[in-house]
């Protein structure tokens, strides 16, 4: 089987003002696989993730060189429609951030801004089912999303991203604010989601990376130290720094 990379970064460098955050990062994120980005706090994991759907654009002092290719097209070229890019690349954030709207309206949000009028109900249900939240909320779609538990809120945010039918889902430490049970549910969910989506997940929880990912990239101070099969990274790392990190010698 031929490996097909959905998203590829080439010599990706990023600065916030004078702060050089990412240094020559080359990663290929394979289609229908889970790629984990690990590393200690402040190593640029989240920043890397946010390059892929251009969320770093929100910060005025950002400067980027190198390429981020999405299906071969550079997302930073001038012709790129950022709105379209973000529809194709969904994102789930560190802290669950549902809108202060009903459960239904949260999931329908992405559809409504696309001007979709018909079949919203079916699409919302489908997204909620995919996020394994449907059974818990089907009788109370009109309650405020903020009254759900933290784990439910995060699955709602996943459903909200899925409703737009993205090709790639970026997850920025999606379980860091959740308890172990809720975390387990989300991890289980990742296994089913990767059949249809390409997933890139940032995590500082090594066990989680080992459990859920097919590939793992280890970032240290903005540099990509090692990128390989998750198994190899965790059982037989090539770089001494990777070994030190995953065995808990620092970080």
């Amino acid at each position: 089987m031929v490996k097909r990379d959905k998203v590829v970064t080439k010599n990706l460098n990023l600065w916030f003002g004078d702060n050089h955050v990412l240094k020559d990062v080359d990663i290929g994120i394979e289609e229908n696989k889970v790629t984990a980005v690990i590393g200690p706090s402040g190593c640029g994991k989240s920043t890397f993730l946010r390059c892929l759907n251009r969320m770093n654009d929100l910060i005025d002092t950002t400067r980027i060189t190198g390429k981020v290719l999405f299906d071969g097209e550079d997302v930073y070229n001038n012709r790129m429609d950022v709105v379209d890019l973000r529809r194709r690349v969904g994102m789930v954030f560190q802290k669950p951030n549902p809108f202060p709207k009903s459960v239904f309206e949260n999931v329908a949000y992405g559809l409504r801004i696309q001007g979709i009028r018909y079949g919203i109900h079916e699409k919302v249900e489908k997204a909620l089912r995919s996020a394994v939240l449907w059974d818990e909320v089907k009788n109370r779609l009109n309650i405020s999303a903020l009254s759900l538990s933290g784990g439910q809120q995060q699955r709602l945010c996943i459903a909200r991203a899925l409703a737009c039918e993205p090709e790639v889902i970026l997850m920025d430490e999606p379980c860091s604010a959740l308890d172990p049970t809720a975390t387990a549910k989300i991890e289980e969910l990742l296994f089913t989601l990767k059949e249809r989506y390409t997933i890139c997940i940032v995590t500082h929880n090594m066990q989680q990376a080992a459990r859920v990912s097919d590939y793992a990239a280890f970032l240290l101070l903005g540099e990509l130290v090692e990128f390989n099969d998750t198994n190899k990274i965790f059982t037989n790392p090539k770089d001494k720094r990777t070994e030190d990190y995953i065995t808990g010698r620092f970080g």
Binding site: M55, I113, A161
Partner: peptide, 21 residues
């Protein structure tokens, strides 16, 4: 919260849609 804004933008909303909705 900035997180609302980010959520909206990440779903492909424009700045204007984010402000209004």
């Amino acid at each position: 919260p900035v997180s609302f804004k980010e959520a909206s933008l990440s779903l492909g909303a424009t700045k204007w849609e984010t402000i209004v909705r």
